[in-house]
Amino acid sequence: MTMRRITRKKNSLNGVTIRKVMYQMKADYQLYLLILPIVAYFIIFKYFPIYGLKIAFLDYDPALGFEKSIWVGFDNFMEFFTGPYFELTLKNTLVLSFYSLLASMPIPILFALVLNSFRDSKGRKAIQTITYAPHFISTIVIVGMLQLFLSPSSGIINRLVVWGGGKAINFLGEPSMFRHVYVWSGIWQNLGWDSVIYLAALSSVNPELHEAAQLDGANRIQRMRYIDLPGILPTIVILLILHFGSIMSVGFEKVYLLQNTTNSQTSEIIATYTYKQGIQRAQYGYSAAVGMFNSVVNLFLLTVVNKISKKVTEVSLW
């Protein structure tokens, strides 16, 4: 008897909440109407492809189609892991990424710290505007410029090299040069832009700290080291996590454009290999497996780095 009463009470409570929710949803129907196209977009253009990753586990046969092709488990992955391109592309991806990360993280930070130490805010703005410029140039134009400037016969860089007594270098054909060209042209393009976020963070450093330190006789470098740098540390950590999380997704666009048959020994990365196998040779199952390996490692790295950062610095993405 008591039991029954309790259950009835519970039911009616549920009924009330459900009715309340329904009422609220009805009142908010316009919000659902507005969000519908966006939800549809994410389902169709983002989640369909995630479901489409199933193809990585299939021996895909266009004649049989997606649903009827034979399920082969991890065969495609094993084919990649045991094949000749696994070591090469994985190594190239990681080396290029780490090199890029190590070289292109500190430079904008230093630049922002130095620029921030100037008092003249108009001059600072002008310099910022100038250094942003390359950020707005397309990858294709950047690579086109590199080809013109680095040409062994007529490029301006090689003229400098020859003029300085060296031998002209075939920057774009030499496998040993590919990574330097990729990383340093990237730094040239994004130095100014990447420093914006640090400058923004620096502008919120309390000026009283600087005044107090100055009274105590700290010089500019000391103040930079003990006031400015700690002030932007959370920003640096967040960006570091984000960079680590994308360590496996080095930009396909620029690598693909810089790539040629002579430098592929160092320039073939997982993304370009996926493109060639998938789009050019229509090996859909195999190339989807290669790409999926890439994304999973990526997600794993991001999670690990985020966890470490949460423990060590209490800064995290989620």
Binding site: K46, L53, G278
Partner: peptide, 14 residues
């Protein structure tokens, strides 16, 4: 979707 996606090939097939 910011952290994980289908990648180039499944997106192309989609």
């Amino acid at each position: 979707t910011m952290y994980f996606g289908g990648g180039m090939i499944p997106t192309y097939l989609n």
